[in-house]
Design a protein around this nucleic acid. Structure first.
Length: 480
RNA sequence: AGCGGUAUCGUCUAGGGGUUAGGAUAGCAGAUUCUCAUUCUGUUGACACGGGUUCGAAUCCCGUUACCGCCGCCA
């Protein structure tokens, strides 16, 4: 079998979309599984909408997700250039070959004429197919049209036949080419249309398998026709179901984050994101869902991919992200949390305490942005008592806090174990003397020192804060 | 309108002519814990509908419905 080569060809008209990331992932997995090559091509022909910032975002996001390409703009490769904008001179040559061989012809129809044809078709409730008005123009007629300043486009002449191909994920797909109509391959401004450019690029880059979203299914027959006309080998196609928003519409900005970098800003880890997205349409044979991309690659078979659409729900992503947060190396995680704690002055906290803070607050969170709220009480002298107010209003509160103040003075705030034991004694004392449940006592302590009803381990929290801050806050709590 | 695709718990999915239709997540209930969090345990919940083939259909076939996609000199 020939070399397996797959590709992802994003258009840099926006940041890397989560759907594109999933398509990239399946291509990557297929390449890894089969020992093939994964190539990246940037389709930046739409100069109006493309920009370098988006291109950079695509590079960064793909890398962060662990989807390193073997060939592409920055790493090179023998089938470049990998920026479509640098390939403009290639397309007219191939279009000319098609014209010369009789597979394509010049079309001088104006947008107005075309519009009229479409309206006519619409009126008769028929599918619009180009009339082929220009197919048999004589050289004289063409010259005359040209003299009038009309620049022709080039249309592909579609043979009437039944076109069948075997899709890697959908199975056998049939099309009646009568319904396609002669489509434009070169615009009158001399640039190629999408359907033409991809074929030429994929052909020249020797792409063997094209795995993409099912929104491309109806482009496929057109592309196959071009491959055939050029006498090129037709690649295998595999069309993935789409990712839909919870309302079953296309995932778009109004649903929130759509770009990988948006998710990262919201506190999702790229490892969790890619793992989650892999499970949309694919499932592991051993039932273990949390897996690295490399582990997934071993188990991956393109034929197992589901051909239906799937809805992107946050519930499971959140859970999965939480799992990754819990398991992540603490030092790396701490680095990663810095942007989410921008509100606070991290310079006043030692690196040791910072890691400790993250260690004790990471457990219940599902996204990193929750840290801003969950870590608030580690900073500053005072604390916001809104959440814990009710607890502090209890009648036992002053009794508990006055006693705490008294005892705390003798505690060693350099030792977690020490504070931990002292707090245990403290609870025991109130249980014995006042018949208070351990949690009731601790609720008051927690509310006084953190202002909250729940939060990180109390002993460790106290050692991070230190005796002065704790004392100050307990006194404050007595005042509310 | 036409063409194409898809249809299993709310969601992601496994399975696939005979199963108690499995798992995950979410939900609910309980347990542990200094915490209304985490963790653990238990539990509710699904084969879109109608025909056909068959001893037997969720599974195969046909139709219907719903949803998605495409119908550009956008990509």
């Amino acid at each position: 079998m020939e070399d397996i080569r797959v590709r992802i060809a994003p258009s840099p008209s926006g940041n890397l979309h989560i759907g594109t990331a999933r398509t990239a992932l399946f291509n990557y997995l297929y390449a890894k599984k089969t020992g093939g090559k994964f190539v990246l091509r940037i389709e930046d022909t739409d100069l109006e909408r493309s920009n370098a910032e988006y291109t950079q975002n695509i590079f960064d996001s793909l890398k962060a997700l662990g989807l390193q390409w073997d060939e592409g703009p920055d790493v090179g490769g023998e089938f470049g250039p990998y920026y479509q904008s640098e390939r403009f001179d290639i397309y007219p040559k191939y279009a000319q070959i098609l014209v010369d061989k009789g597979y394509a012809y010049e079309c001088f129809c104006t947008p107005e004429e075309l519009e009229a044809e479409k309206e006519e078709a619409m009126k008769n409730h028929k599918a619009y197919v180009y009339s082929r008005k220009c197919m048999n123009l004589s050289e004289e007629e063409k010259a005359a049209l040209r003299a009038k300043g009309i620049k022709p486009s080039i249309r592909f002449k579609v043979e009437h036949k039944e076109l069948i191909f075997n899709d890697l994920v959908k199975g056998e797909l049939k099309f009646d080419t009568n319904l396609i109509g002669d489509f434009v391959i070169m615009k009158s401004n001399g640039t190629p249309t999408y359907n033409f450019a991809v074929v030429i690029d994929d052909m020249m880059m020797k792409i063997s398998h094209i795995i993409r979203g099912e929104d491309h299914i109806s482009n496929t027959p057109k592309q196959i026709l071009i491959y055939e006309a050029l006498g090129a080998e037709v690649p295998k196609f595999g069309h993935l179901g789409m990712i839909l928003a919870p309302d079953r519409s296309k995932l778009s900005k109004r649903h929130g984050a759509t770009a990988v970098s948006d998710f990262v800003k919201q506190g999702y880890l790229t490892d969790a994101l890619i793992n989650f997205v892999a499970l949309l349409g694919w499932s592991p044979s051993d039932g273990v869902e949390i897996k690295t991309v490399e582990e997934i690659a071993k188990d991956f078979r393109i034929h197992d991919v589901s051909s239906s659409n799937s809805i992107f729900e946050y519930d499971k992503l959140n859970w999965m992200n939480g799992q990754y947060i819990k398991k992540m190396d603490i030092s790396k995680l701490t680095e990663m949390t810095v942007p989410f704690l921008a509100k606070y002055d991290l310079n006043n906290m030692s690196r040791e305490n910072l890691e400790k803070m993250i260690e004790i607050t990471r457990e219940p969170i599902t996204t990193l942005n929750q840290l801003e709220y969950d870590c608030a009480y580690f900073f500053g002298q005072d604390v916001d008592y809104t959440e814990g107010l009710e607890t502090l209003k209890k009648e036992e509160a002053s009794l508990v806090l006055n006693r705490l103040l008294e005892l705390m003075n003798g505690w060693d705030f350099n030792s977690d174990e020490h504070i931990h034991d002292k707090l245990a004694d403290f609870r025991a004392e109130f249980k014995e003397k006042h018949n208070m449940k351990p949690k009731e006592t601790m609720w008051i302590v927690r509310a006084a020192i953190t202002g909250r009803t729940r939060g990180a381990d109390m002993a460790k929290t106290m050692t991070i804060l230190g005796k002065d801050v704790c004392t100050h806050r307990v006194k404050q709590a007595l005042e509310v």
